[in-house]
């Protein structure tokens, strides 16, 4: 199962890279720079999935109080943090030639930044909470509140008008079918990559816990 998932992810990521570079047509206005957008979307999508997993796992942990939900939440948060960092970096690389700046405080960027900070705090809280049960419970509570907070942050940041492109939905421009294919493959690829990384991270985490249990020190 692990092997199948690994090769599937590998194949899809290679395909996504190829499609991004060669299959997708060059955007008329932005040129080749626009190609980074597929990976930008892929990472931000996977990061969103990751943080939703953290949220759901945290609720389950509070209700059931079994360690595996806490492990799931923590590992997912770590990977989500990595993906979100990549999102911000790819977004910046795109924004410099197109907007003429690395960073601007538009609603989507502000929300992304706050999301990043929230999960940085989540990880700090885990390292600074204290005992094992307390660490799990506190971080679960914080994750739930943070997840609920995020839409409110977005709405309040929207009070000022933004410049991030809206591609889909009302007001969006719609895109070329070839671009759509590329995007879908990239999204799928990153979703699988997230699942793969999550599985591996949890395996390592469980091994760590088993080792700690054997040596008699609580993690």
């Amino acid at each position: 199962m692990r092997k199948i998932l690994f090769f599937l992810t590998f194949a899809l990521m290679v395909l996504a890279t190829w499609m991004t570079l060669f299959y997708a047509p060059t955007e008329v206005v932005m040129g080749h720079v626009q190609r980074i957008f597929y990976f930008h979307m892929g990472t931000v999508w996977a990061a969103t999935v990751a943080f939703t997993v953290v949220f759901v796992a945290s609720i389950y942990y509070l209700v059931k109080e079994t360690a595996k939900w806490d492990t799931l939440a923590y590992c997912s948060a770590e990977i989500g943090m990595l993906l979100l960092t990549l999102t911000i970096i790819t977004g910046s690389i795109w924004a410099k030639p197109v907007w003429g700046t690395w960073w601007t405080w538009d609603p989507q960027l502000t929300t992304t930044f706050i999301l990043w900070v929230l999960y940085a705090v989540y990880l700090v809280l885990r390292s600074g909470a204290g005992g094992r049960g307390k660490k799990a419970r506190y971080s679960a509570i914080f994750a739930i509140i943070a997840y609920v907070d995020l839409p409110v942050v977005y709405v309040s940041a929207r009070i000022k008008r933004g410049i991030s492109p809206v591609v889909f939905g009302p007001g969006g421009g719609g895109i070329d079918p070839a671009m759509m294919h590329t995007l879908l493959v990239t999204l799928l690829g990153f979703t699988l990559l997230f699942v793969l990384l999550l599985g591996e991270r949890m395996r390592i985490m469980n091994m760590e816990n088993a080792l700690y249990a054997r040596s008699g020190r609580g993690g």
């Binding site: 900070v117 705090v121 700090v124 600074g128 204290g130 914080f142 509140i145 943070a146 309040s156």
Partner: peptide, 19 residues
Amino acid sequence: NTKLRDMMLPLLVFPLIIP
């Protein structure tokens, strides 16, 4: 109740009260 005590409070609250 955390190890960091008072240090932790602004860290937890500031990002959440942005709205």
